[in-house]
Simulated assay, not measured.
Amino acid sequence: MEQHAHSMDDLFNQLGQSQDSEGILKFIQANQPLAGDVRLHNAAFWSPSQAAFLQQAISDDADWAEVVEALNSALHASA
């Protein structure tokens, strides 16, 4: 099976968020740091459909997994 490399811009577009670099940076800054015990898909700022997508991307080790993990790391990092 061929996997596709998705960018952070692609992920934010998929999540219905602003996908330009400034919008992504503002989103991350506004929502970090995410507490260490909060899984990315359980963060309060996601809609149910966004949370389901993020959870499935990780659990299925889908094409999106790498960029979702990058977002997870960015949100758990200290500002």
Rank of each mutant, 00 (worst) to 15 (best):
L11V: 07
D37F: 06
N13F: 10
N72K: 11
L40F: 08
Q19H: 13
G36F: 04
H6G: 01
N42A: 10
Q56L: 04
L71C: 08
Q55M: 14
H76V: 03
L40Q: 04
H76I: 01
Q17C: 07
S49Q: 11
E66H: 09
A35D: 12
I28T: 03
A5F: 06
A35V: 03
S7K: 05
W46E: 04
A57P: 03
I58M: 11
G36Y: 00
A77C: 01
F45I: 12
Q50P: 04
L71Q: 01
A65L: 05
L11N: 04
H41P: 05
K26W: 09
D63E: 12
L71Y: 02
W64Q: 02
M1Q: 11
H76Q: 13
A62S: 15
L11K: 07
F53E: 01
A52C: 00
Q55R: 15
Q29Y: 07
D63Y: 08
R39T: 08
A51S: 15
L34F: 08
A57G: 07
Q32G: 09
S73M: 02
S7A: 06
Q3L: 09
F12H: 07
L40V: 09
K26T: 11
D61G: 12
Q14R: 15
A30Q: 15
L75N: 03
A5K: 10
D63N: 14
P33Y: 03
A5M: 07
I28R: 03
Q17V: 03
S73I: 00
E66V: 15
F12E: 05
Q56F: 04
I58P: 00
H41V: 03
D9M: 07
S18F: 05
N42F: 10
G36L: 06
E66M: 08
D9H: 13
A44H: 11
E69T: 13
L34C: 08
Q17R: 13
L25F: 08
D10V: 06
H6S: 02
N31Q: 10
S21F: 07
A43R: 09
A65D: 09
S78D: 09
P48A: 14
M8C: 02
D63C: 11
A65Q: 14
L11Q: 05
P33F: 02
A51F: 09
S73L: 00
G36W: 01
Q19S: 14
H76L: 04
D10P: 01
L15H: 08
E66F: 05
F45L: 08
F27W: 15
D61F: 10
